[in-house]
Simulated scan of single mutants.
Amino acid sequence: MRMRPTLAWTPPQDWPSGTTDLEPVANALSTGGVLVLSGAGISTESGIPDYRGEGGSLSRHTPMTYQEFTASDQARRRYWARSHLGWRTFGRARPNAGHRAVAAFARHGLVAAVITQNVDGLHQAAGSKDVVELHGSLGRVVCLSCGTFSPRGELAKRLQEANAGFDPVAAAINPDGDADLTDEQVGDFRVVPCTLCGGILKPDVVFFGENVPPQRVEHCRTLVREAASLLVLGSSLTVMSGLRFVRQTVQSDKPVLIINRDPTRGDLHAVTRVALPLGTALTTMAERLDIQVD
């Protein structure tokens, strides 16, 4: 089960410190067969905030759980009002240098695949082909009754038509794509049903309190087994959904390398943690490896 994130984890005083030495990561990439595990930190340079970094959204925002969403009409109204407004910003986000570097490494056969904890679709937009969206995608919508999938853009148009004039000013946009709105701003926002069966629509993302599909987890475990190393990019590894792949890699006697500015729960398992901005670190490595980043 994907647990709701907290601010509780703080590294002990004797936790390993980060470095600026990119050599171990460059060496792993030059060998090839690298599996990338990416988190919210790789998308911050595209204007999407993370949960736990400096100014992270968890200091002011608690993501909705699956149980809340399915149990309450008011909870769904609040979610879709916030998400509809947030999608205007979220949907305009574009890949940054980090996403483009990962795609370039893949084109040169150095990165075998990407497992991303993000729901923004930016790895694919940058050109990465073999991407597993561990927590789904905000770009798709699913009906909880008939199981039909549809593009988020279609729902956005329907919500816009049903809520003409809805244009509140949000305090902030969050990593899960919704906006900080008060109950007064949500008001009587109208939620629209599935066009086929009239059922409840939900973004095709794994909410906190909901299980990642077992077949998706097993596919990720297969990628770990087939990889030569695991490169973690921009994830604090605070929740088990990502940390379990780090542990699996270590149990297989394969190296784990991390690029994240802040300490992570996986640092004790890693060969190194590079504490540099991801765009800078990845483009620097691309230059070292004589790889052009588009």
Rank of each mutant, 00 (worst) to 15 (best):
R2W: 04
P5M: 12
W9E: 08
P11C: 11
P12T: 05
W15I: 15
T19V: 08
E23P: 11
E23L: 15
E23Y: 15
V25P: 06
V25T: 10
L35Q: 06
L35C: 06
S38R: 10
G39F: 02
E45P: 01
E45W: 02
D50C: 05
D50V: 05
Y51Q: 05
Y51H: 03
G56V: 09
T62N: 09
P63V: 04
T65M: 03
Q74G: 09
Q74K: 13
R77P: 04
L85R: 00
G86Q: 08
G86W: 08
W87A: 05
F90W: 14
R92I: 04
R92K: 11
A93Y: 01
R94Y: 11
P95F: 00
A97K: 06
V102W: 00
R107S: 13
V111S: 12
V111P: 10
A112H: 13
T116F: 05
N118L: 06
V119K: 05
Q124T: 09
A125L: 12
A125I: 11
G127Y: 02
G127Q: 05
D130K: 12
V132T: 05
V132P: 02
V132H: 03
V132N: 03
G136L: 03
G136Y: 01
R140E: 09
R140M: 06
V141G: 08
C143V: 15
T148N: 12
F149T: 12
S150H: 14
R152T: 06
A162S: 14
G165E: 07
F166K: 03
F166D: 02
F166M: 02
V169L: 08
A171Q: 15
T182W: 08
Q185S: 09
G187F: 03
V192P: 00
V192E: 01
C194W: 09
T195L: 08
T195N: 07
L201E: 04
K202T: 15
V205R: 14
G209K: 04
N211T: 15
P213S: 13
R221H: 12
V224G: 04
A227I: 04
S229H: 03
L231N: 00
L231I: 02
V232Y: 02
S235H: 01
L237G: 03
M240T: 10
V256K: 12
L257M: 04
I258Y: 01
I258C: 03
D262H: 13
R265F: 12
R265Q: 15
T272Q: 09
R273T: 06
V274R: 04
V274T: 07
P277A: 14
G279S: 01
T283I: 08
A286Y: 00
E287I: 07
